[in-house]
């Protein structure tokens, strides 16, 4: 009888500890996931992040970033020129942190990459046209924490 009770206690303790451990791991993984695309270059944030979210460097390849940084005076229809000094710094940062499998191979527009289209296939055409969205470049319309590099599912709120 005593043994039985002891074993129950033992079981309870083992289960609680495992549960806490598992929870810890999950939280940790979620934390890593939520900041996977963090941008940690002040010049890039300041120079590029005023007009659009400072897109995670991993979303394009090094060559694409270099091409974009070469043509800033005609940047998707606007003049986004920066000083030569800043351009060199930002180019080096973007190329160094550029991406692999998720990067767009054939286009300079992240939103035209196969990866982007696949990830956003479930979004209705009407949603893209909502005033709150306006453009596929407006990550923050749905990815509310995009600016801190958090594109995780749990921080998505699609406007209606």
């Amino acid at each position: 009888m005593l043994n039985e009770r002891k074993r129950k206690w033992f079981d309870a303790v083992v289960w609680s500890v495992s549960a806490l451990f598992a929870l810890g791991l999950t939280v940790d993984a979620a934390h890593a996931e939520s900041h996977r695309y963090a941008v940690d270059n002040a010049a890039y944030r300041a120079e590029c992040g005023s007009c659009h979210v400072a897109y995670p460097p991993a979303l394009l390849g090094a060559e694409a970033w270099r091409a974009i940084m070469q043509g800033l005076n005609q940047h998707f229809g606007t003049d986004a020129s920066v000083s030569d000094e800043k351009r060199a710094e930002i180019t080096a940062y973007l190329a160094g942190a550029s991406g692999g499998k998720r990067s767009a191979a054939t286009t300079l527009r992240i939103t035209e990459s196969q990866w982007f289209r696949k990830e956003h296939a479930e979004i209705a055409a009407t949603t893209w046209k909502l005033p709150a969205v306006k453009s596929a470049a407006n990550c923050e319309a749905c990815h509310r924490q995009a600016n801190s590099g958090d594109f995780s599912e749990r921080n998505i709120r699609v406007p209606r």
Partner: peptide, 9 residues
Amino acid sequence: RHVTTGRSI
């Protein structure tokens, strides 16, 4: 608000 990207200014 940026007219093309929607980013707040």
